[in-house]
């Protein structure tokens, strides 16, 4: 019932947006090339879906995204566990992280090209940078916030490393780590497109730049809509997975979110 209500609301709001868009176009104050009409844009989407352009670009983008994100998740979680556990080392590293974190990954682009060359690498590195910091920071704080009573219980029953890490610390920190992974997913998706706009010859970001270069504003808008929808689908899939794992962990879902 609740999901039905939600989807009705979603459909209504999207429909309203399209109506307003069409009305603005109908005023005739904007040239076709400055603001293409919904019909033209949806035809554009249909065209790139039909001739396989979209699928090709999507495949390339998704492979880059997955590579960068998985690398960031692995290094972020492993480093986060080590640094979260070793507070004194973390206190030295934390200031550096705090300086690097607010820098947009795109700012690194000149160096990335020099260090990693062109091709897939720059986009992967940018995704990595974008995803790494939220994952690292949430893991560190997750490890730091493990309830002292769990450690006391483990100590009492004589649990030693590595059992302590895998049986107590990692699962106890998991809800916070999962939040970080989820947050990083959104950020990484944003920077995927940005990364491909400046350095790639393929992918969803490139598809938009390519459309601009051939003066196809309808395809630019089509690209924007597709990226938005794909990002939303990705987010929902991960949320489903996250909720399922959290339920297995016995963490009540109502408490969070």
């Amino acid at each position: 019932m609740n999901t039905l209500k939600k989807s009705i609301k979603a459909v209504v709001s999207i429909f309203a947006l399209i109506v307003i868009w069409q009305l603005v176009v109908l005023t005739g104050r904007f040239e076709e090339s400055l603001l293409p009409s919904p019909a033209v844009v949806f035809t554009g989407i249909w065209d790139i879906v039909k001739d396989g352009t979209l699928l090709n670009h999507y495949r390339v983008s998704f492979a880059r995204f997955l590579t960068g994100y998985v690398l960031a998740a692995l290094t972020g979680v492993i480093l986060g566990l080590l640094l979260g556990w070793n507070k004194s080392v973390w206190s030295f590293i934390d200031p550096v992280i705090q300086i690097l974190r607010p820098v947009s990954p795109i700012a690194w682009f000149p160096f990335i090209v020099l260090w990693f060359g062109i091709g897939d690498a720059p986009a992967v590195v940018i995704i990595f940078i974008a995803a790494f910091f939220p994952i690292l920071l949430s893991t560190v704080s997750g490890v730091g916030n493990v309830d002292a009573i769990y450690m006391k219980v483990a100590d009492n029953f004589g649990l030693k490393q590595p059992a302590l890490l895998f049986k107590i610390i990692l699962p106890a920190a998991f809800p916070l780590i999962a939040n970080g992974l989820h947050l990083a997913l959104g950020t990484a998706w944003v920077f995927l497109v940005a990364g491909e706009m400046v350095g790639a010859q393929s992918g969803l970001g490139f598809m938009i730049i390519d459309a601009r270069n051939s003066l196809r504003s309808d395809l630019v808008l089509a690209g924007i809509i597709i990226i938005g929808v794909l990002g939303l689908i990705l987010d929902r899939l991960v949320r489903l997975l996250e909720n399922r794992i959290k339920r297995q962990w016995g963490v009540s879902l109502e408490e969070r979110n």
Partner: peptide, 20 residues
């Protein structure tokens, strides 16, 4: 140091919520 020969029971149970 603590030992599994003397187990403490806490007021807030100390159960691991992710385990059944």
């Amino acid at each position: 140091k603590p030992s599994e020969n003397r187990i403490t029971i806490f007021q807030n149970y100390g159960l691991l919520p992710w385990r059944n």
